[in-house]
């Protein structure tokens, strides 16, 4: 039986009068791909922001690997093995593709108070970075600027950067957003190939969600209304009404 890797207990966040996260209790099991779906404004991105440490919850706890991480900074969580990708692509546009990943590798190879040796000739950074690029099949673009890449390629790069931090859990905030069908298929393939890494996936593309997810949680107006296997969720009457109904 798989153990619980990430757990939230009664997580709450309000913005003014809006409850973005309303008593959310969620378990992500070790090794699974857990998708969170829900209509726009359901509070999914707010949830990711709290899990990654960018936003402090008003109440509730977040447990990661059994440890309470609610009060920890984003950088501490990263070092514990929590990685995230951003909804709005946020790679470093002025750097090359390889530089981007090398920077992610560097974050987890000791401190960076090294002022003298050129980082771009450092094989301890370059080799692992190249390896990550191979995983997302961007190795041919290693020396191009991130700003010269297509949207879909940048999203692949995001994944490579998250991977480079050696995560136990990846928080993926709409990795397929704004992608065409081909790019989406490539992303699904990439994510499928990442065996052994637990994923929490927020996504709108239902085909991708059902292709990837082991379990699905449905969020509406900040509340979790259902959690279960894809088949269970598909069959759930409340879910169909609240969410899937409008797509059907």
């Amino acid at each position: 039986m798989a153990s619980t890797l990430l757990e939230t207990q009664e997580l709450q966040k309000r913005f003014g009068g809006v409850t973005a996260t309303d008593h959310v209790s969620l378990q992500v099991e070790e090794g699974e791909c857990h998708a969170v779906i829900g209509p726009n404004g359901a509070g999914k991105t707010t949830l990711i922001a709290q899990l990654s440490g960018m936003l402090a919850p008003d109440a509730g706890t977040i447990l990661f690997n059994g440890k309470n991480i609610t009060q920890l900074t984003a950088q501490r969580r990263s070092h514990m093995g929590l990685a995230r990708s951003f909804q709005i692509t946020s790679v470093f546009m002025g750097l090359t593709v390889l530089d981007n990943v090398a920077l992610a590798v560097q974050a987890h190879t000791g401190h960076s108070f090294h002022f003298w040796r050129p980082a771009r000739q450092d094989q301890a950074l370059r080799a692992p970075a190249m390896e990550m690029l191979e995983k997302v099949r961007l190795q041919d673009r290693a020396n191009d600027l991130a700003s010269e890449m297509s949207h879909g390629e940048r999203r692949q790069l995001e994944i490579a950067m998250a991977l480079a931090t050696g995560p136990h859990l990846m928080l993926l905030d709409e990795p397929m957003a704004g992608m065409g069908p081909e790019e989406t298929a490539r992303m699904v393939e990439t994510l499928k190939s990442l065996d052994g890494i637990t994923m929490l996936l927020v996504e709108h593309d239902m085909d991708a969600v059902f292709a990837l997810a082991d379990r699905i949680s449905v969020m509406v107006y900040g509340r979790l209304i259902a959690t279960g296997s894809p088949a269970e969720v598909r069959a759930n009457e409340e879910v169909r009404q609240a969410y899937l109904g409008e797509a059907a």
């Binding site: 990685a83 951003f86 002022f115």
Partner: peptide, 28 residues
């Protein structure tokens, strides 16, 4: 030398996107 060192990469990254750097694990 500083700009091209590991340290330099970090401050340049923090310039581009500080949230990203923090979620990569840097105390920017």
């Amino acid at each position: 030398r500083i700009v091209n060192s590991r340290f330099g990469m970090v401050i340049q990254g923090a310039k581009g996107n500080e949230d990203r750097m923090r979620s990569l694990g840097y105390s920017t």
